[in-house]
Nucleic acid binder design. Structure first.
Lengths: 282, 282
DNA sequence: TCAAAAGTGTTGGACCTACACCCATGT
DNA sequence: ACATGGGTGTAGGTCCAACACTTTTGA
């Protein structure tokens, strides 16, 4: 580390904010349908002007990453005080068309229904988009003491008539005992390499739901067990049996004395997160 | 994103390379003792001249993070082609005494005994240090709908007569449903914030051993099940029962026709990693 | 009355824990 | 012969999936 002049890139953060929200209710008896959504902004400036992208910003000179993410979300979306977790730093030299920019992505989770987003600084529009992920191709080639595996994933993001499609290829390679993973964007309606970031974040979230208590960050303070189950179901992408689910999460929640009323059926007890439950963090 | 002049920090990578290595054998019958170790270099230049630190380097202008880590390890330590995984990016504005430097840390894992390290560029010395972690204090304060938890961790790194001690405090805070984690160095014999990076890496590795196949990256191509068990035991920091361990990892390995000989006891079969086993990745 | 969801109980099987025991080797 | 590790079997308990069933509400 001599007193040389080293290369200095620009540094940004990008935030991938997820939520699970109620959509239309067709029947006074039925529970509202839930959708897994991500927050996108329509870019007001170059590059990628008028493209939808993850909310991001340059990191200020005296600002930590966390401060930059919080500022970004407040300035651009009017969101404050949400759960945030650093995910990954993207350092590919060619990821920004202008010049080299490295970006650290953060995942944010917000409680379903009481947040009001508002387009802010450098933002033309801001919206929640429904997320659909599909594996459209999987190939595996075995080699001597290893393998080469590719998986093509299609991401469809929808908000009313707006449909954004992206296709990403994840390559996992085992070369003399060492696993190498890299991702490639085949096609994307999103700005920059945001399709990659999104796929990474979704995989991580889905994965962590299984062995941590991260899903509670998507819930309001008090919630019914059925709503919690719906959140798990939408993230794990499979139906769960009620009795079994309740036994599984029994230690993670505490019942309150309150009930949810005015549904067309038996009122359900409201629960809270049990802060004494010892969760995994990673 | 206007055409403004944005702040540009220097960017580095730091590598935390772990291994589990055999140390002295006292008895021709007994298996060698294993030690969990990390690779450190003694800095040749300022700042922190003559301090031990994690091997790191500035990221070149046309270089990805992975390329920088590989170059760093080859230049400084003569290590090539090892398993690497990005862990975390450290962006605290004050983490480098000279000027703002952000650093992305990578964890590296190498097979126990057939690697030969060699001090290289900007390195005075290079050594494997035994790792001992101890939780020396744990406090929890409950608050309305949340808590405040601190954990003090002592890290002792040893190589012959050299003993490096560090003390780190991890704070976990639950504030209106959102978990915030931050770490603070109370005292450290290591350069920069490397004590933090090390604690983070150790926790992540220990955690991943439980639900992924990451430990196999610490093994040679062919190994005995007892040696694999020893690696698990040292990382999980608890003894395991042989019969149960073997049933647990049965699907992850394939037996070969080879045997380990010349021990003072019954020869053990050599196994390989089963590349068809579907592991978790995160 | 009844559709919808709330909430609980049961049963068989899979898996995990702890322990016991026998086998093969080099000196 | 024997210390040492290699290797396997089993009994008991826990956990989990699948299913069945009862309860409570608002219109």
């Amino acid at each position: 580390m001599k007193k040389e002049v080293f290369f200095r890139p620009s540094v940004t953060i990008d935030s991938i904010v997820f939520t699970v929200r109620d959509v239309n209710v067709d029947n006074y008896r039925k529970l509202p349908e839930k959708k897994f959504q991500v927050l996108l902004v329509k870019r007001a400036g170059e590059p990628y002007k008028d493209k939808w992208s993850l909310p991001g910003t340059f990191v200020g000179e005296k600002e930590s990453f966390e401060e930059a993410v919080n500022r970004c979300l407040e300035e651009k979306a009017n969101i404050k005080d949400i759960y945030l977790e650093q995910l990954y730093s993207w350092g590919n030299p060619l990821r920004d068309p202008r010049e080299r920019v490295i970006s650290t992505s953060y995942m944010g989770l917000v409680d379903s229904n009481n947040i009001q987003i508002k387009a802010g600084k450098n933002v033309e529009e801001i919206e929640w988009f429904n997320i659909k992920l599909k594996t459209i191709q999987e190939k595996r080639t075995d080699r001597k003491d290893g393998y080469y595996k590719t998986e093509q994933i299609e991401i469809i993001l929808e908000n009313k008539e707006i449909v954004l499609k992206s296709k990403v290829e994840v390559v996992k390679e085992l070369v003399n005992g060492n696993l190498i993973i890299y991702t490639q964007i085949l096609q994307s309606d999103l700005a920059f390499d945001h399709a990659k970031m999104l796929v990474y974040a979704i995989e991580r979230l889905k994965n962590k739901v299984e062995y941590t208590t991260i899903a509670f960050h998507l819930m309001p303070e008090k919630f019914t067990l059925t709503k919690l189950q719906q959140v798990y179901e939408i993230l794990l992408d499979k139906p769960l049996l009620k009795a079994n689910f309740r036994r599984k999460i029994a230690d993670m929640v505490i019942e309150t004395e309150e009930y949810e009323e005015n549904a067309g059926h038996r009122p359900s007890k409201l629960y809270q997160f049990n802060t004494h439950f010892q969760p995994h963090v990673f």
